[in-house]
């Protein structure tokens, strides 16, 4: 039977099966990737034809303070967002894992993930409205005189990061929870017989065995986190964000579609490709180094 299968030649069928995906890939992934690299070496305004300018865009970029600022605030965003989201999600997942298998609870935690970031941005812009926002009302009740606002240079970025953490923590928690379900229940039972408490079990069973899943979740959410755009595009009423929240995606968007510096925008995007590539490579290496003890 093996021989029958091995002799089959799928040369024609194989490429036919691939055809739609190949067309999509070549036209909308490969071709634009090549084109994007080319644009980054040109002066291109969408109206003229791209004119080759060598490394000019990259030279300009090195001295461009707004670009460095965009990188910096994006990094700040990623750290606050990924940090808070992963920690809270880990806690939530552990609680669910030890307490309940409720599908309703999990579904409820998933709701913010289903909702467009645009909606989430609007909702929180409303909740944090300086005059009528309910959150600021609560802060007032608690006796705090801070008014949180997306226009505050100090609070803007942490707020944007926390809003997105709010939206994605449930989703992340469910990913981690699914990983925890793979851990043999017997380990907890015997640890419990040996007198280990819940905290101890979390630290010596759950965490070590969950390491690969945590690493994978980190890789995926980190790359996603760099793509922050919708929220800052919305919470300023459709106007440009303040410099403290002008993230790299928004900066590229602005360069390309507000100022029509297509070539320059492509160069900035190239930098993002490199940054993400390096980060992913580093994380993958750490991922390999952190194989679960479960094997």
């Amino acid at each position: 039977m093996q021989a029958v299968l091995r002799k089959r030649d799928d040369r024609v069928a194989g490429w036919l099966f691939l055809l739609p995906v190949l067309v999509g890939f070549l036209v909308f992934y490969a071709y634009p990737t090549v084109r994007g690299v080319w644009y980054s070496f040109t002066d291109y305004s969408l109206l003229n034809d791209p004119a080759y300018v060598g490394a000019d865009n990259y030279r300009e970029l090195v001295g461009d303070e707004q670009f460095w600022n965009a990188l910096k605030v994006t990094a700040y965003y990623v750290v606050v967002n990924i940090g808070s989201q992963t920690l809270i999600a880990l806690g939530l997942a552990a609680l669910m894992h030890r307490l309940t298998r409720s599908v309703v609870l999990r579904a409820a935690l998933l709701v913010p993930w289903l909702v467009p970031n645009v909606t989430i941005g609007l909702l929180w812009a409303w909740l944090l409205d300086p005059d009528l926002g309910f959150v600021n009302h609560l802060l007032g009740l608690a006796g705090l005189d801070t008014t949180l606002s997306f226009n505050s240079p100090t609070w803007a970025m942490p707020l944007v990061a926390l809003v997105n953490s709010w939206a994605y923590t449930g989703y992340t928690a469910l990913l981690l929870y699914a990983g925890m379900l793979q851990i043999p229940q017997g380990l907890y039972e015997s640890a419990s017989i040996d007198g280990a408490g819940e905290v101890r079990m979390f630290r010596s069973i759950t965490l070590p065995l969950l390491r690969p899943i945590i690493a994978l979740v980190l890789v995926v959410s980190l790359i996603g986190s760099f793509q922050i755009f919708d929220t800052v595009a919305v919470v300023y009423g459709g106007k440009a964000p303040i410099p403290e929240t002008r993230v790299i995606y928004y900066y590229i968007f602005q360069q390309a579609f507000t100022y029509f510096h297509m070539g320059y925008a492509a160069a900035v995007a190239m930098v993002l490709v490199v940054v993400l590539g390096v980060l992913t490579a580093v994380q993958m290496r750490m991922l390999r180094a952190s194989r679960s003890d479960l094997g």
Binding site: Y29, G36, Q227, A256
Partner: peptide, 22 residues
Amino acid sequence: VIVAALMVPPIFTLLPNFVLVK
């Protein structure tokens, strides 16, 4: 090659794709 494209952030292909669609 297709898996390698996972590494390319969407905004990078978005700019030329916009030009193409235009």
